Each structure stands twice: as structure tokens, then as C-alpha cells.
Amino acid sequence: MASCQQNLPDRFGVLNDTSSFVANKVSHRGMVLIPAGAFNMGANDKDGHEDEYPQHKVKLSSFWMDVSEVTNAEFKKFVDATGYITTAERKPVWEEMKKQLPAGTPKPPDSVFVAASLVFYQPQSIDGLDNVAQWWRWVKGANWQHPHGPKTDITGKDNYPVVHISWDDAMAYCKWTGKRLPTEAEWEYAARGSLKDNLYPWGNEDIEKGIAKANTWQGSFPISNTNWDSYEGLAPAKRFKPNGYGLFDMAGNVWEWCSDWYRSDYYEAADELATNPIGPPDSYDPMEPKIPKKIVRGGSFMCNASYCKGYRVTSRMKTSTDTSLEHTGFRCVSSN
């Protein structure tokens, strides 16, 4: 099964200085309290990727979680208050970029150092599903305010999830709100919605049986989308039934950043009964060993059974902290 974000190009930049941010007092408005408990983390079905095994028991304290992904309107309040500039809005910096490249890599021409982000384009035909460049493009001027480039905007989409957000951007927002990103364990536990060992946030029924359950891709990815769920691209927040904890869109719509570093072998070394695990101390992806990556969860509007089942509660993907894409956003949690 192909990975939804395998070998994507990386975006490089210098972080804003967030040291001067004044964290707001945490408000639990728009959040739900996830009760303390223990669960079996990881896959117990045949559809899991290798890094989803073995399943292992995890114990968590209670925490608060946003009922939906952070929206354009919410992110705009943060930008207006702080002047924050997202990764996608800044030119890459060669001194940062070369740290993740093999020694001696020549500097590209200055013309490629432009503010840009990754945008999905639906091709008319493809040669297999291994080359993601067939449907992803770097687009100059694409960012959270201009999702498909300078000539597009988010007018009328205040309640859509904010996208083109890097992990660094999500962390900056969380710091401003006084919240944080969920750990991978917290995210999966919350996504399960109190259901034990089920495949999806709603249970075990196949995603395309019964009523529409999430915003995903129906048809032949990435060539044709039947729009059976009523959405071709992003959907507004809260358009599908919430899970057992009252959380919306824990499957599909946009991938969501977690706080954990990614290691392909992390589950193999996990404690039998870990309490509030925060993930490995560093990142290691054997496919791209020089690029530090963080976990994203939940799948997106691009997920399809023929390509990736990212909407499964155990599905885990990885992306470099400075990468931004049209189908990646986040939600926040708080411990108190």
C-alpha cells in the first residue's frame, strides 16, 4: 500500500521568533474532556503498515481536545494578534536546507527559493501510485490564505480547516492559545471514541457503506472522484457525525499534526504498558534518514482504499516539520 505522504519534497525556512508570544489563558470552549483510560494502541488488522505493529497497551490521563480541526477563522485571529508568518509564506533558506541534504550538494539557482507550498492537482492519467509528483505540485504563493495559489482565497470559508500549515506553524498557534499538540497516543485514543479495537472512529463498517461518514476520496484515486460524500476537496468542519467522544473529522478531511517524532521502529520498542507516552526522543525514517519528521494522523480528503486508508484509527504517516500541504492541518489539546 502506498503511503499518502511518501517522499514528498521538503519545505525549508527559518522560524518566526515565538519567544515573545503571550500565551492566552486556556479556554475549554470548543473542547471536550477525554476521560482517562487504557487502550490497545496500534493495528490488529491486515491493512496496517509495518510501523503500526505490534499493538501495545497504553494508559493515559484525562485531557481536553478541540472538537474540530483549527479553522481559518481561528487561525486568522492568531495571525492578526501576533503578526505570525507561516512557513509557506517565507522563502526557503539555503543554510537551513543544506543541513538535510547530502554533503556537497550544490546550491540550486536563486529562482527556486520562493515562498510556496504543495497543492493537489488531479491528473487525467497516472503511471502507478508510487510517484506522488504526478498529483502534487509546488505552487508559488500557495499558503493558508491562498490554498491554490495567489489567485485563490478563503473568502466564505471561515469554518473550513486551515491548511498549508507546517508543524512549526501548528506549534506556534498552540503556544499562543496556551494549548499543545496531542501526542500520537492521545490522538489515537481520542479517535477511537471509546470503541475497543475498532478500525474507524465510527466502528467497523466500511467507509463507503451506509451513510457518508467522513470526507475521503471515492472513485479511482487520483484520476476521478465520484463525490459520493458531497465533497471533492476540503469540507467545512463538523459536516459528518462525531465519534463517541463528540469529536468531528477524526477521519478524513485533513491530516492532523501530533507532537511526536517519527521512528519506524518505535512500536517495536514500546513499553508493554506505557503511561502518557510522548514518543521517541528523536526521528528516524530509513527512507530519508537525514530528514527529521513528525507524526500526522487521521487521513484526508485524498484517502482512498486503493491508495491509503489513512482514515483508519491506527494509520500513521510522517512529514518533515517544515512541510506544508493542501491537506494538512491540526487540532489542539490541553492537560488542564
Rank of each mutant, 00 (worst) to 15 (best):
S3G: 14
Q5K: 02
L8M: 15
D10R: 03
S19G: 08
V22Y: 11
K25W: 08
K25G: 13
D45H: 13
K46A: 15
D51S: 10
H56V: 07
F63A: 12
W64G: 10
D66L: 07
N72V: 15
A73F: 08
K77L: 15
F78N: 01
V79A: 09
R90H: 09
P92I: 10
A103M: 05
S111H: 00
V114W: 00
Q122W: 04
Q122I: 12
I126A: 09
W138P: 07
W138E: 12
K140Q: 09
K140F: 01
G156K: 00
Y160P: 02
D169A: 07
M171P: 00
Y173I: 03
C174S: 15
K175H: 11
T177Y: 06
L181P: 06
E184W: 11
S194F: 13
Y200E: 11
W202Q: 14
I207R: 02
K209V: 09
Q218N: 14
Q218H: 09
P222Q: 03
I223F: 09
W228F: 10
W228R: 13
D229K: 09
S230M: 10
A235F: 10
R239V: 15
N243L: 08
M250P: 04
N253H: 04
W255P: 02
R263T: 11
Y266H: 13
A274E: 09
E288Y: 03
K293V: 05
V296W: 00
V296C: 05
G299C: 10
C303L: 03
Y307V: 04
K309L: 07
Y311Q: 02
V313E: 01
C332D: 02
V333A: 11
S334I: 02
S334M: 01
N336W: 08
